[in-house]
Design a protein around this nucleic acid. Structure first.
Lengths: 239, 239
DNA sequence: CGATTAATTGATACTTCTCAAATCCTGTGG
DNA sequence: CCACAGGATTTGAGAAGTATCAATTAATCG
Protein backbone atom coordinates (compact mmCIF):
# COMPACT_ATOMS: atom_id res chain seq x y z
CA UNK A 1 0.00 0.00 0.00
CA UNK A 2 1.37 3.40 -0.96
CA UNK A 3 0.44 6.60 0.83
CA UNK A 4 -3.15 6.82 1.80
CA UNK A 5 -5.49 9.53 0.66
CA UNK A 6 -6.59 11.35 3.75
CA UNK A 7 -7.54 14.66 2.23
CA UNK A 8 -10.97 15.60 3.44
CA UNK A 9 -13.22 16.83 0.70
CA UNK A 10 -15.51 18.24 3.32
CA UNK A 11 -17.18 21.39 2.03
CA UNK A 12 -16.29 24.57 3.86
CA UNK A 13 -19.91 25.57 4.20
CA UNK A 14 -22.66 23.32 5.52
CA UNK A 15 -24.99 24.56 2.79
CA UNK A 16 -22.95 22.56 0.30
CA UNK A 17 -22.78 19.40 2.39
CA UNK A 18 -24.51 16.49 0.72
CA UNK A 19 -25.21 14.85 4.04
CA UNK A 20 -27.01 17.83 5.43
CA UNK A 21 -30.46 16.56 4.55
CA UNK A 22 -29.98 13.51 6.72
CA UNK A 23 -28.28 15.37 9.57
CA UNK A 24 -29.40 17.54 12.46
CA UNK A 25 -28.75 20.54 10.24
CA UNK A 26 -31.44 19.81 7.70
CA UNK A 27 -34.00 22.51 6.92
CA UNK A 28 -31.94 25.21 8.61
CA UNK A 29 -31.77 28.70 7.15
CA UNK A 30 -28.72 30.64 6.33
CA UNK A 31 -27.98 32.84 9.33
CA UNK A 32 -27.64 29.74 11.51
CA UNK A 33 -25.87 27.65 8.92
CA UNK A 34 -23.38 30.47 8.51
CA UNK A 35 -22.78 30.52 12.23
CA UNK A 36 -22.10 26.79 12.33
CA UNK A 37 -20.05 26.79 9.15
CA UNK A 38 -17.91 29.63 10.41
CA UNK A 39 -17.05 27.84 13.65
CA UNK A 40 -16.79 24.26 12.56
CA UNK A 41 -13.54 22.53 11.73
CA UNK A 42 -12.70 19.29 9.99
CA UNK A 43 -11.20 16.40 11.86
CA UNK A 44 -9.95 13.13 10.49
CA UNK A 45 -9.85 9.82 12.34
CA UNK A 46 -8.01 6.83 11.06
CA UNK A 47 -9.59 3.42 11.41
CA UNK A 48 -9.39 2.27 14.99
CA UNK A 49 -8.88 5.70 16.50
CA UNK A 50 -10.87 6.76 19.53
CA UNK A 51 -13.11 9.66 18.57
CA UNK A 52 -14.63 10.15 21.99
CA UNK A 53 -13.84 8.43 25.25
CA UNK A 54 -16.43 7.21 27.75
CA UNK A 55 -16.25 9.31 30.91
CA UNK A 56 -14.67 12.32 29.19
CA UNK A 57 -16.24 15.73 28.71
CA UNK A 58 -16.53 16.57 25.03
CA UNK A 59 -15.86 20.18 24.10
CA UNK A 60 -18.10 19.94 21.09
CA UNK A 61 -20.07 17.65 18.86
CA UNK A 62 -19.08 15.76 15.73
CA UNK A 63 -21.20 15.48 12.65
CA UNK A 64 -19.98 12.60 10.52
CA UNK A 65 -19.17 13.58 6.96
CA UNK A 66 -17.96 10.21 5.78
CA UNK A 67 -16.96 7.01 7.45
CA UNK A 68 -18.28 4.61 10.05
CA UNK A 69 -17.96 4.39 13.80
CA UNK A 70 -19.12 2.24 16.67
CA UNK A 71 -20.61 3.66 19.86
CA UNK A 72 -20.15 1.40 22.87
CA UNK A 73 -20.15 1.25 26.64
CA UNK A 74 -17.81 -0.91 28.62
CA UNK A 75 -19.34 -3.40 31.03
CA UNK A 76 -17.81 -4.73 34.18
CA UNK A 77 -15.00 -6.88 32.85
CA UNK A 78 -14.22 -4.23 30.27
CA UNK A 79 -16.29 -6.06 27.68
CA UNK A 80 -17.66 -3.61 25.18
CA UNK A 81 -21.34 -3.41 24.44
CA UNK A 82 -21.98 -1.80 21.09
CA UNK A 83 -25.05 0.36 21.35
CA UNK A 84 -25.18 1.42 17.74
CA UNK A 85 -23.16 2.11 14.63
CA UNK A 86 -22.94 5.57 13.20
CA UNK A 87 -22.39 6.74 9.65
CA UNK A 88 -22.76 9.75 7.36
CA UNK A 89 -24.84 12.53 8.87
CA UNK A 90 -24.72 11.07 12.38
CA UNK A 91 -24.39 13.40 15.33
CA UNK A 92 -22.07 12.50 18.20
CA UNK A 93 -21.59 13.88 21.67
CA UNK A 94 -24.73 15.94 21.90
CA UNK A 95 -26.22 13.94 24.72
CA UNK A 96 -23.29 14.53 27.00
CA UNK A 97 -23.25 18.25 26.26
CA UNK A 98 -26.97 18.74 26.70
CA UNK A 99 -27.14 16.70 29.90
CA UNK A 100 -23.93 18.26 31.12
CA UNK A 101 -22.67 14.80 32.02
CA UNK A 102 -19.57 12.85 31.09
CA UNK A 103 -19.87 10.73 27.98
CA UNK A 104 -21.80 7.55 28.61
CA UNK A 105 -20.08 5.73 25.78
CA UNK A 106 -16.95 5.65 23.70
CA UNK A 107 -16.86 6.15 19.96
CA UNK A 108 -14.24 4.50 17.80
CA UNK A 109 -13.80 4.79 14.05
CA UNK A 110 -14.44 1.54 12.20
CA UNK A 111 -12.83 2.95 9.09
CA UNK A 112 -11.18 6.19 8.10
CA UNK A 113 -13.67 8.86 9.02
CA UNK A 114 -14.04 12.57 8.32
CA UNK A 115 -16.13 14.62 10.68
CA UNK A 116 -17.04 18.23 11.29
CA UNK A 117 -16.35 19.45 14.78
CA UNK A 118 -18.73 22.02 16.15
CA UNK A 119 -17.66 23.62 19.43
CA UNK A 120 -20.00 23.31 22.38
CA UNK A 121 -20.68 27.04 22.51
CA UNK A 122 -21.83 27.28 18.91
CA UNK A 123 -23.89 24.16 19.25
CA UNK A 124 -25.67 25.42 22.35
CA UNK A 125 -26.08 28.86 20.87
CA UNK A 126 -27.93 27.53 17.85
CA UNK A 127 -29.91 25.10 19.98
CA UNK A 128 -31.13 27.90 22.20
CA UNK A 129 -31.87 30.39 19.49
CA UNK A 130 -33.24 28.23 16.73
CA UNK A 131 -36.33 26.19 17.60
CA UNK A 132 -36.09 24.35 14.33
CA UNK A 133 -32.62 23.04 15.10
CA UNK A 134 -33.60 22.25 18.64
CA UNK A 135 -36.54 20.27 17.35
CA UNK A 136 -34.29 18.41 14.91
CA UNK A 137 -32.00 17.34 17.73
CA UNK A 138 -35.00 16.46 19.85
CA UNK A 139 -36.29 14.23 17.08
CA UNK A 140 -32.93 12.55 16.71
CA UNK A 141 -32.88 11.86 20.40
CA UNK A 142 -36.43 10.51 20.32
CA UNK A 143 -35.53 8.26 17.42
CA UNK A 144 -32.54 6.85 19.23
CA UNK A 145 -34.76 6.29 22.23
CA UNK A 146 -37.15 4.31 20.08
CA UNK A 147 -34.33 2.20 18.71
CA UNK A 148 -32.99 1.64 22.21
CA UNK A 149 -36.38 0.34 23.24
CA UNK A 150 -36.34 -2.19 20.45
CA UNK A 151 -32.86 -3.32 21.41
CA UNK A 152 -33.88 -3.74 25.03
CA UNK A 153 -36.87 -5.88 24.12
CA UNK A 154 -34.76 -7.94 21.77
CA UNK A 155 -32.02 -8.54 24.35
CA UNK A 156 -34.55 -9.39 27.02
CA UNK A 157 -36.77 -11.70 25.03
CA UNK A 158 -35.02 -13.13 22.01
CA UNK A 159 -32.35 -15.79 21.96
CA UNK A 160 -28.92 -15.31 20.46
CA UNK A 161 -29.85 -16.92 17.17
CA UNK A 162 -32.72 -14.50 16.66
CA UNK A 163 -30.67 -11.51 17.69
CA UNK A 164 -27.93 -12.43 15.25
CA UNK A 165 -30.33 -12.68 12.34
CA UNK A 166 -31.86 -9.41 13.44
CA UNK A 167 -28.57 -7.54 13.56
CA UNK A 168 -27.54 -8.85 10.14
CA UNK A 169 -30.75 -7.44 8.68
CA UNK A 170 -30.16 -4.19 10.51
CA UNK A 171 -26.67 -3.94 9.05
CA UNK A 172 -28.11 -4.45 5.60
CA UNK A 173 -30.69 -1.74 6.12
CA UNK A 174 -28.18 0.70 7.58
CA UNK A 175 -25.15 0.23 5.38
CA UNK A 176 -26.51 -1.40 2.26
CA UNK A 177 -24.68 -3.87 0.07
CA UNK A 178 -21.67 -3.80 -2.23
CA UNK A 179 -21.84 -4.71 -5.89
CA UNK A 180 -20.80 -8.21 -4.92
CA UNK A 181 -23.74 -8.44 -2.57
CA UNK A 182 -21.84 -8.22 0.69
CA UNK A 183 -22.84 -6.00 3.58
CA UNK A 184 -21.05 -2.70 3.17
CA UNK A 185 -19.60 -2.84 6.66
CA UNK A 186 -16.73 -4.85 8.04
CA UNK A 187 -16.96 -6.05 11.61
CA UNK A 188 -14.92 -8.59 13.52
CA UNK A 189 -16.75 -11.57 14.95
CA UNK A 190 -16.13 -10.08 18.34
CA UNK A 191 -17.79 -6.81 17.37
CA UNK A 192 -20.74 -8.69 16.00
CA UNK A 193 -20.96 -10.58 19.28
CA UNK A 194 -20.72 -7.31 21.17
CA UNK A 195 -23.70 -5.96 19.31
CA UNK A 196 -25.97 -8.85 20.14
CA UNK A 197 -24.72 -9.47 23.65
CA UNK A 198 -23.16 -12.89 23.38
CA UNK A 199 -19.79 -14.63 23.44
CA UNK A 200 -17.64 -14.40 20.33
CA UNK A 201 -17.67 -18.18 19.97
CA UNK A 202 -21.45 -18.28 20.04
CA UNK A 203 -21.68 -15.65 17.33
CA UNK A 204 -19.24 -17.64 15.20
CA UNK A 205 -21.15 -20.87 15.64
CA UNK A 206 -24.45 -19.30 14.71
CA UNK A 207 -22.96 -17.55 11.71
CA UNK A 208 -21.64 -20.89 10.47
CA UNK A 209 -25.06 -22.35 11.04
CA UNK A 210 -26.77 -19.65 8.97
CA UNK A 211 -24.12 -20.10 6.35
CA UNK A 212 -24.47 -23.87 6.09
CA UNK A 213 -28.23 -23.44 5.80
CA UNK A 214 -27.71 -21.12 2.87
CA UNK A 215 -29.22 -18.01 4.43
CA UNK A 216 -25.96 -16.10 4.29
CA UNK A 217 -22.56 -16.38 2.63
CA UNK A 218 -19.34 -15.82 4.52
CA UNK A 219 -16.05 -14.76 3.00
CA UNK A 220 -13.71 -13.69 5.75
CA UNK A 221 -15.37 -10.70 7.35
CA UNK A 222 -17.60 -10.20 4.38
CA UNK A 223 -21.16 -11.31 4.86
CA UNK A 224 -23.83 -11.57 2.18
CA UNK A 225 -27.50 -11.91 3.02
CA UNK A 226 -28.60 -14.58 0.57
CA UNK A 227 -32.12 -15.14 1.83
CA UNK A 228 -33.40 -12.10 3.70
CA UNK A 229 -36.92 -13.50 3.91
CA UNK A 230 -35.76 -16.59 5.74
CA UNK A 231 -33.48 -14.43 7.86
CA UNK A 232 -36.43 -12.36 8.90
CA UNK A 233 -38.19 -15.50 10.05
CA UNK A 234 -35.08 -16.51 11.95
CA UNK A 235 -35.04 -13.11 13.57
CA UNK A 236 -38.62 -13.66 14.69
CA UNK A 237 -39.62 -10.43 13.03
CA UNK A 238 -43.28 -10.44 12.10
CA UNK A 239 -44.54 -7.35 10.41
CA UNK B 1 -64.00 -1.54 51.17
CA UNK B 2 -66.32 1.45 51.04
CA UNK B 3 -66.21 4.12 48.37
CA UNK B 4 -62.79 5.09 47.25
CA UNK B 5 -61.42 8.61 47.28
CA UNK B 6 -60.75 9.51 43.72
CA UNK B 7 -60.96 13.28 43.95
CA UNK B 8 -57.96 14.81 42.26
CA UNK B 9 -56.40 17.59 44.21
CA UNK B 10 -54.53 18.64 41.12
CA UNK B 11 -54.03 22.41 41.11
CA UNK B 12 -55.76 24.29 38.35
CA UNK B 13 -52.64 26.19 37.46
CA UNK B 14 -49.24 24.62 36.83
CA UNK B 15 -47.59 27.42 38.80
CA UNK B 16 -49.02 25.87 41.97
CA UNK B 17 -48.06 22.31 41.12
CA UNK B 18 -45.59 20.88 43.60
CA UNK B 19 -44.22 18.48 41.02
CA UNK B 20 -43.39 21.20 38.57
CA UNK B 21 -39.75 21.49 39.64
CA UNK B 22 -39.12 17.89 38.67
CA UNK B 23 -41.16 18.00 35.48
CA UNK B 24 -40.63 19.25 31.96
CA UNK B 25 -42.32 22.47 33.02
CA UNK B 26 -39.70 23.56 35.49
CA UNK B 27 -38.17 27.02 35.14
CA UNK B 28 -40.89 28.15 32.74
CA UNK B 29 -42.27 31.68 32.88
CA UNK B 30 -45.82 32.73 33.15
CA UNK B 31 -47.05 33.37 29.65
CA UNK B 32 -46.24 29.80 28.70
CA UNK B 33 -47.39 28.28 31.96
CA UNK B 34 -50.67 30.11 31.51
CA UNK B 35 -51.05 28.68 28.05
CA UNK B 36 -50.49 25.16 29.30
CA UNK B 37 -52.63 25.60 32.39
CA UNK B 38 -55.49 26.98 30.34
CA UNK B 39 -55.53 24.02 27.99
CA UNK B 40 -54.70 21.16 30.30
CA UNK B 41 -57.27 18.90 31.86
CA UNK B 42 -57.13 16.37 34.66
CA UNK B 43 -57.51 12.70 34.02
CA UNK B 44 -57.75 9.89 36.52
CA UNK B 45 -56.67 6.32 35.94
CA UNK B 46 -57.54 3.53 38.29
CA UNK B 47 -54.95 0.90 39.05
CA UNK B 48 -54.55 -1.42 36.10
CA UNK B 49 -56.05 0.92 33.53
CA UNK B 50 -54.32 1.43 30.21
CA UNK B 51 -53.17 5.03 29.95
CA UNK B 52 -51.70 4.75 26.49
CA UNK B 53 -51.70 1.84 24.08
CA UNK B 54 -48.72 0.73 22.02
CA UNK B 55 -49.36 1.41 18.35
CA UNK B 56 -51.91 4.16 18.99
CA UNK B 57 -51.55 7.85 18.16
CA UNK B 58 -51.75 9.94 21.30
CA UNK B 59 -53.59 13.22 20.95
CA UNK B 60 -51.58 14.79 23.74
CA UNK B 61 -49.12 14.16 26.50
CA UNK B 62 -49.63 13.28 30.13
CA UNK B 63 -47.72 14.78 32.99
CA UNK B 64 -48.09 12.60 36.07
CA UNK B 65 -49.35 14.45 39.09
CA UNK B 66 -49.49 11.51 41.46
CA UNK B 67 -49.34 7.78 41.05
CA UNK B 68 -47.16 5.19 39.37
CA UNK B 69 -47.17 3.58 35.95
CA UNK B 70 -45.24 1.07 33.94
CA UNK B 71 -44.09 1.66 30.38
CA UNK B 72 -43.63 -1.51 28.38
CA UNK B 73 -43.36 -2.96 24.91
CA UNK B 74 -44.77 -6.30 23.94
CA UNK B 75 -42.38 -8.83 22.46
CA UNK B 76 -43.25 -11.59 20.06
CA UNK B 77 -45.30 -13.90 22.20
CA UNK B 78 -47.00 -10.91 23.76
CA UNK B 79 -44.63 -10.97 26.69
CA UNK B 80 -44.24 -7.52 28.12
CA UNK B 81 -40.89 -5.91 28.52
CA UNK B 82 -40.99 -3.12 31.06
CA UNK B 83 -38.74 -0.34 29.87
CA UNK B 84 -39.19 1.88 32.88
CA UNK B 85 -41.48 2.93 35.67
CA UNK B 86 -42.88 6.42 35.82
CA UNK B 87 -43.99 8.49 38.77
CA UNK B 88 -44.72 12.08 39.84
CA UNK B 89 -43.54 14.66 37.33
CA UNK B 90 -42.99 12.11 34.57
CA UNK B 91 -43.88 13.03 31.01
CA UNK B 92 -45.62 10.49 28.79
CA UNK B 93 -46.32 10.35 25.09
CA UNK B 94 -44.00 13.10 23.96
CA UNK B 95 -41.77 10.79 21.94
CA UNK B 96 -44.59 9.61 19.76
CA UNK B 97 -45.86 13.13 19.17
CA UNK B 98 -42.47 14.58 18.37
CA UNK B 99 -41.46 11.73 16.08
CA UNK B 100 -44.91 11.66 14.57
CA UNK B 101 -44.95 7.91 15.01
CA UNK B 102 -47.33 5.51 16.74
CA UNK B 103 -46.54 4.84 20.38
CA UNK B 104 -43.67 2.42 20.78
CA UNK B 105 -44.89 1.26 24.17
CA UNK B 106 -47.97 0.93 26.32
CA UNK B 107 -48.42 2.64 29.65
CA UNK B 108 -50.50 1.11 32.40
CA UNK B 109 -51.24 2.53 35.84
CA UNK B 110 -49.70 0.51 38.66
CA UNK B 111 -51.83 2.33 41.18
CA UNK B 112 -54.50 4.99 41.08
CA UNK B 113 -52.95 7.83 39.14
CA UNK B 114 -53.81 11.45 38.49
CA UNK B 115 -52.36 13.11 35.44
CA UNK B 116 -52.61 16.36 33.56
CA UNK B 117 -53.45 15.99 29.91
CA UNK B 118 -51.94 18.54 27.57
CA UNK B 119 -53.26 18.46 24.03
CA UNK B 120 -50.76 17.90 21.25
CA UNK B 121 -51.33 21.35 19.78
CA UNK B 122 -50.52 23.19 22.99
CA UNK B 123 -47.55 20.98 23.64
CA UNK B 124 -46.10 21.58 20.19
CA UNK B 125 -46.89 25.26 20.36
CA UNK B 126 -44.90 25.72 23.53
CA UNK B 127 -42.12 23.47 22.26
CA UNK B 128 -41.73 25.53 19.13
CA UNK B 129 -41.99 28.91 20.76
CA UNK B 130 -40.15 28.41 24.02
CA UNK B 131 -36.54 27.29 23.71
CA UNK B 132 -36.35 26.72 27.45
CA UNK B 133 -39.17 24.21 27.37
CA UNK B 134 -37.80 22.59 24.28
CA UNK B 135 -34.46 22.21 26.00
CA UNK B 136 -36.14 20.72 29.06
CA UNK B 137 -37.79 18.06 26.94
CA UNK B 138 -34.55 17.50 25.08
CA UNK B 139 -32.78 16.91 28.37
CA UNK B 140 -35.45 14.50 29.51
CA UNK B 141 -35.06 12.58 26.30
CA UNK B 142 -31.27 12.55 26.64
CA UNK B 143 -31.57 11.28 30.18
CA UNK B 144 -33.84 8.45 29.16
CA UNK B 145 -31.39 7.63 26.41
CA UNK B 146 -28.61 7.39 28.97
CA UNK B 147 -30.70 5.11 31.15
CA UNK B 148 -31.58 2.97 28.16
CA UNK B 149 -27.89 2.53 27.44
CA UNK B 150 -27.29 1.26 30.94
CA UNK B 151 -30.18 -1.17 30.64
CA UNK B 152 -28.86 -2.47 27.34
CA UNK B 153 -25.42 -3.12 28.77
CA UNK B 154 -26.91 -4.78 31.79
CA UNK B 155 -29.16 -7.07 29.75
CA UNK B 156 -26.33 -7.96 27.42
CA UNK B 157 -23.61 -8.60 29.95
CA UNK B 158 -25.00 -9.37 33.37
CA UNK B 159 -26.69 -12.55 34.49
CA UNK B 160 -30.18 -12.69 35.93
CA UNK B 161 -28.98 -12.67 39.51
CA UNK B 162 -27.05 -9.45 38.98
CA UNK B 163 -29.88 -7.80 37.10
CA UNK B 164 -32.33 -8.62 39.86
CA UNK B 165 -30.14 -7.07 42.54
CA UNK B 166 -29.66 -4.08 40.27
CA UNK B 167 -33.35 -3.51 39.73
CA UNK B 168 -34.10 -3.79 43.42
CA UNK B 169 -31.59 -1.04 44.12
CA UNK B 170 -33.08 1.01 41.31
CA UNK B 171 -36.55 0.65 42.79
CA UNK B 172 -35.21 1.84 46.12
CA UNK B 173 -33.59 4.88 44.53
CA UNK B 174 -36.66 5.73 42.47
CA UNK B 175 -39.51 5.14 44.89
CA UNK B 176 -37.89 5.19 48.29
CA UNK B 177 -38.97 3.19 51.29
CA UNK B 178 -41.98 3.12 53.59
CA UNK B 179 -41.74 3.62 57.34
CA UNK B 180 -41.56 -0.13 57.72
CA UNK B 181 -38.56 -0.22 55.40
CA UNK B 182 -40.25 -1.76 52.40
CA UNK B 183 -39.84 -0.48 48.87
CA UNK B 184 -42.60 2.01 48.19
CA UNK B 185 -43.73 0.22 45.07
CA UNK B 186 -45.75 -2.93 44.66
CA UNK B 187 -44.94 -5.16 41.72
CA UNK B 188 -45.97 -8.70 40.94
CA UNK B 189 -43.21 -11.25 40.52
CA UNK B 190 -44.06 -11.31 36.87
CA UNK B 191 -43.59 -7.56 36.54
CA UNK B 192 -40.28 -7.81 38.29
CA UNK B 193 -39.28 -10.56 35.87
CA UNK B 194 -40.44 -8.42 32.96
CA UNK B 195 -38.15 -5.63 34.06
CA UNK B 196 -35.03 -7.77 34.17
CA UNK B 197 -35.82 -9.91 31.16
CA UNK B 198 -36.25 -13.32 32.70
CA UNK B 199 -38.90 -15.93 33.42
CA UNK B 200 -41.18 -15.33 36.40
CA UNK B 201 -39.99 -18.53 38.05
CA UNK B 202 -36.38 -17.47 37.78
CA UNK B 203 -37.12 -14.13 39.40
CA UNK B 204 -38.94 -15.92 42.22
CA UNK B 205 -36.09 -18.33 42.83
CA UNK B 206 -33.50 -15.60 42.96
CA UNK B 207 -35.64 -13.47 45.25
CA UNK B 208 -35.90 -16.41 47.64
CA UNK B 209 -32.18 -16.83 47.41
CA UNK B 210 -31.51 -13.20 48.30
CA UNK B 211 -34.02 -13.51 51.10
CA UNK B 212 -32.51 -16.64 52.61
CA UNK B 213 -29.12 -14.99 52.52
CA UNK B 214 -30.49 -12.07 54.48
CA UNK B 215 -29.97 -9.41 51.84
CA UNK B 216 -33.65 -8.68 51.51
CA UNK B 217 -36.88 -9.42 53.37
CA UNK B 218 -40.01 -10.60 51.60
CA UNK B 219 -43.55 -10.17 52.85
CA UNK B 220 -45.95 -10.91 50.03
CA UNK B 221 -45.25 -8.29 47.42
CA UNK B 222 -43.45 -6.12 49.90
CA UNK B 223 -39.69 -6.15 49.61
CA UNK B 224 -37.22 -4.60 52.05
CA UNK B 225 -33.60 -4.05 51.16
CA UNK B 226 -31.84 -5.21 54.31
CA UNK B 227 -28.26 -5.05 53.11
CA UNK B 228 -27.89 -2.60 50.23
CA UNK B 229 -24.11 -2.81 50.30
CA UNK B 230 -24.14 -6.53 49.73
CA UNK B 231 -26.86 -6.08 47.15
CA UNK B 232 -24.65 -3.69 45.27
CA UNK B 233 -21.93 -6.31 45.17
CA UNK B 234 -24.45 -8.85 43.95
CA UNK B 235 -25.48 -6.43 41.25
CA UNK B 236 -21.85 -6.16 40.18
CA UNK B 237 -22.00 -2.42 40.55
CA UNK B 238 -18.60 -0.96 41.22
CA UNK B 239 -18.44 2.74 41.65
C1' DC C 1 8.99 -14.09 7.59
C1' DG C 2 7.67 -13.89 12.46
C1' DA C 3 4.51 -12.49 15.72
C1' DT C 4 0.05 -11.20 16.93
C1' DT C 5 -4.48 -11.17 16.53
C1' DA C 6 -8.70 -13.24 14.77
C1' DA C 7 -11.49 -17.16 13.69
C1' DT C 8 -12.86 -21.77 14.33
C1' DT C 9 -14.11 -26.09 16.55
C1' DG C 10 -14.78 -29.32 20.35
C1' DA C 11 -15.85 -30.64 25.04
C1' DT C 12 -17.81 -29.47 29.26
C1' DA C 13 -20.06 -26.84 32.81
C1' DC C 14 -23.33 -23.62 34.07
C1' DT C 15 -27.36 -20.75 33.66
C1' DT C 16 -31.84 -20.20 32.57
C1' DC C 17 -36.22 -21.74 30.64
C1' DT C 18 -40.15 -24.63 30.38
C1' DC C 19 -43.57 -27.55 32.07
C1' DA C 20 -46.11 -29.39 35.89
C1' DA C 21 -48.06 -29.53 40.25
C1' DA C 22 -49.19 -27.68 44.67
C1' DT C 23 -50.20 -23.87 47.60
C1' DC C 24 -51.43 -19.34 48.69
C1' DC C 25 -54.04 -15.01 48.09
C1' DT C 26 -57.51 -11.90 46.77
C1' DG C 27 -61.67 -10.15 45.45
C1' DT C 28 -66.57 -11.45 44.65
C1' DG C 29 -71.09 -12.93 45.24
C1' DG C 30 -74.26 -15.22 48.13
C1' DC D 1 -69.27 -14.15 57.19
C1' DC D 2 -68.20 -17.91 54.13
C1' DA D 3 -67.14 -20.38 50.09
C1' DC D 4 -65.21 -20.15 45.72
C1' DA D 5 -63.03 -18.93 41.34
C1' DG D 6 -59.21 -17.22 39.38
C1' DG D 7 -54.93 -15.52 39.58
C1' DA D 8 -50.31 -15.28 41.79
C1' DT D 9 -46.61 -17.58 43.98
C1' DT D 10 -43.73 -21.29 44.92
C1' DT D 11 -41.01 -25.49 44.20
C1' DG D 12 -39.21 -29.39 41.56
C1' DA D 13 -37.34 -31.79 37.59
C1' DG D 14 -35.66 -32.00 33.19
C1' DA D 15 -34.48 -29.77 28.80
C1' DA D 16 -32.31 -26.10 26.20
C1' DG D 17 -29.45 -22.51 25.47
C1' DT D 18 -25.01 -20.23 26.27
C1' DA D 19 -20.68 -19.52 28.22
C1' DT D 20 -16.15 -21.00 29.17
C1' DC D 21 -11.85 -23.18 28.42
C1' DA D 22 -8.57 -25.26 25.42
C1' DA D 23 -6.47 -26.29 21.22
C1' DT D 24 -5.91 -25.43 16.29
C1' DT D 25 -5.91 -23.07 12.12
C1' DA D 26 -6.18 -18.86 9.45
C1' DA D 27 -5.39 -14.14 8.55
C1' DT D 28 -3.03 -9.83 9.10
C1' DC D 29 0.54 -6.41 9.83
C1' DG D 30 4.89 -4.49 10.29
Amino acid sequence: MATKQITPNVPAHCAECLNRTKSAFKNLDNPDLDEVSKRKSCVFFRKGQVMMQEGARPQGVYCIYSGKAKLFKRGNEGKEQIMRLITDGGLIGYRSILSDEPLGASIVALEDTHVCYIPKTSFLEVIESNPKFSLNVLKISCNELGEAGKIITSLAQKNVRERLAEVLLLLGATFGHTKEGYLDISLTREELANMIGTATESAIRLLSELSSEGLITLKGRKIALVDPIALKERAAIFD
